[in-house]
Design a protein around this nucleic acid. Structure first.
Length: 314
RNA sequence: CGGAUGCCGCGU
């Protein structure tokens, strides 16, 4: 069972619908076909792969539907911007826990329905850290930094995530000075904080400062590596991007797409194509990127040819 | 009890 859970999660992260379906079929012929954990993971996998219809089907057909399944299906609806379905399910579900409320809160924020989000938040009986952070993030993304700061001050607990959320909000809306002050005040920094920090330096045009923050990091995850690679790419330094890419010990689709981007922006479309071909797996974003790149450099025929080669058009 | 779904940073 746990093996299948891992496989489904992996397919979901990679948004690999074909692989997900394959595992689904394999599960159905196995002895775990009606496992109560697996059925929820199936719904989640379809949601993450962008297939709302199959997520819904998995939910409705599940013999093992429980109150967790409702949370999973709401999350699937929300991730795919089916907000009315999410709302409908939320109202119909037999039992709502902290996660149900917060998932719905995030859905409203994502839909741009800030008032509904606030309303939901106010009606919550118990607000945990994640609920507070979601409310904070909703204000921060909206650009309502006053409300964001107010929410931050009212929070019963400050975690690294709340600090990161607030700082990202300030950075996103051009308040770099405030962000710097907050960085100095926060008690601890994680990989995420450091990544936010060096991205901010880079966006301010100080790529050397960004690099030294990156090099000073004791732990770097794949996102940190990718962020540094795309920073050099945006800067036109495709050679430096390539060097970092080679140094990275963990790579995913985004790392490869960032490298392709770096070559494209550096005007080396042939090297970009080469990297694209060497990629172990392509998702729709990487295809879109290269097609757009060709179109923008005026190579419409190449762009069209790639489009025709697309295995999945969404 | 355990499993599972919700918050912050990377390419489109």
């Amino acid at each position: 069972v746990q093996e299948y859970v891992k496989l489904l999660k992996f397919a979901g992260q990679a948004k690999n619908l074909a692989e997900g379906k394959r595992i689904h079929r394999e599960i159905e012929t196995s002895s775990f076909s009606s496992d109560k954990f697996l059925s929820d993971h199936l719904i989640d996998m379809y949601g993450k792969c962008g297939s709302v219809h199959e997520a819904r089907a998995a939910f409705e057909q599940s013999k093992q539907r429980n109150w967790n399944s409702w949370n999973v299906i709401i999350s699937a609806f929300a991730q795919n911007r089916h907000f009315h379905d999410a709302m409908f399910a939320f109202e119909r579900m037999p039992k709502r826990d902290a996660i149900s409320w917060t998932t719905m809160l995030k859905a409203y924020a994502k839909a741009g329905e800030l008032k509904e989000a606030v309303n939901l938040f106010d009606n919550m009986l118990k607000r945990d850290d994640v609920a507070w952070n979601n409310m904070l993030a909703a204000y921060a993304q909206e650009g309502n930094l006053c409300k964001a700061l107010l929410t931050f001050d009212l929070m019963p607990q400050w975690t690294v995530v709340s600090w990161n959320t607030l700082i990202s909000g300030y950075l996103e809306h051009g308040c770099a000075d405030e962000a710097t002050k907050l960085f100095d005040q926060m008690p601890e920094e994680t990989v995420v904080s450091k990544t936010v920090k060096f991205r901010a330096s880079a966006q301010a045009g100080n790529i050397h400062a960004a690099r030294s923050i990156f090099e000073s990091m004791t732990e770097r995850d794949v996102v940190a590596w990718n962020a540094m690679i795309s920073t050099y790419g945006e800067n036109g330094s495709s050679d430096e991007a390539k060097k970092l890419f080679d140094r990275a010990r963990e790579r995913n689709v985004i790392s490869w797409t960032s490298l392709v981007t770096a070559f494209t922006l550096g005007g080396q479309i042939d090297r970009a194509t080469g990297a694209f071909k060497r990629m172990p797996g392509h998702d729709s974003a990487s295809w879109n990127f290269l097609i757009t790149a060709y179109a923008q450099t005026g190579q419409d025929t190449e762009s069209k040819r790639l489009f025709d080669e697309l295995p999945m058009k969404d």
